[in-house]
Design a protein around this nucleic acid. Structure first.
Lengths: 140, 140
DNA sequence: CTGCATCCATAATGATACTG
DNA sequence: CAGTATCATTATGGATGCAG
């Protein structure tokens, strides 16, 4: 169901509080896909070029074969990455960024850049852990 | 992990393949924080201005109180958003973007923009569900 | 080598009822 | 209104075995 007309309507949203329901709709859909721990990580790792299954497993410490396989299949189905299987012995399978995933990678790179700039701040803030802004009263 | 087949190319994982371990380190840390479904969504929703607890719950369909509370607390601890509690009756608590979260919001907005442009493509690709790229003749 | 299937343990999350 | 507490469901990780 193409909501291209709906996007046009939602595009003119002002600075009012809240996001139109239709916009919230596909935001949710996208975050459901790439909003997990592994998807963006795989996208980021694949920026360096095509990679084999075991290479990815080695590049991403902590990921289980279950999740690696699952996430790779999901990203492939979504057209974000390509899976190229060579009928050889031993089998060789290479995963690479698809054009669509390349576009997403641009966003991911910015996220990583932002992380590099502010992860210190985040860690510092997290140490305070409990600092609640108080408006006027002294007790909350 | 023996590269006995002697394919050769995969073994020499040099500079092109992947991300340095130290960089991978904080990428993981950041994605562990904002890489979940709800964090970025809350950041995006908060762009419109300060919001109360129930407003957020209303703006984000499908989120449970548990996750809303948990994510809000986490974002607050990380310094991405601010929590302002007014000692009134009835109680009123407003959440707003902190400067740090505002910077992240810029990334999130781009992600949303990307989503708006390509969510159709993703859905189309997902429908195919099984299209495996075939080795285009010349490789290796 | 590249996966997939399964059992099990542990988180993460959702749903509901309840409290200050 | 703004949360907390508890339970049920799901997601994920770990290990193992198996198949193409």
């Amino acid at each position: 169901m193409q909501d291209s007309a709906g996007i046009g309507m939602a595009a003119s949203v002002g600075p009012c509080a809240g996001i139109p329901a239709d916009r919230m709709d596909f935001i949710r859909q996208v975050l459901d896909r790439v909003g997990d721990k592994w998807s963006m990580l795989i996208i980021a790792v694949l920026e360096g070029g095509p990679m084999r299954y075991t290479d990815l497993q080695r590049q991403i410490p902590g990921i289980s074969q279950r999740m690696l396989t699952h996430t790779l299949r999901q990203l492939t189905q979504d057209g974000l990455i390509t899976r190229t299987a060579y009928a050889e012995v031993p089998p060789r399978v290479e995963y690479a960024l698809a054009p669509l995933g390349g576009g997403l990678n641009e966003i991911v790179k910015q996220l990583i850049g932002w992380a590099a700039d502010h992860h210190d701040d985040i860690r510092a803030n997290r140490s305070r852990a409990g600092t609640t802004a108080e408006p006027s009263s002294s007790r909350s």
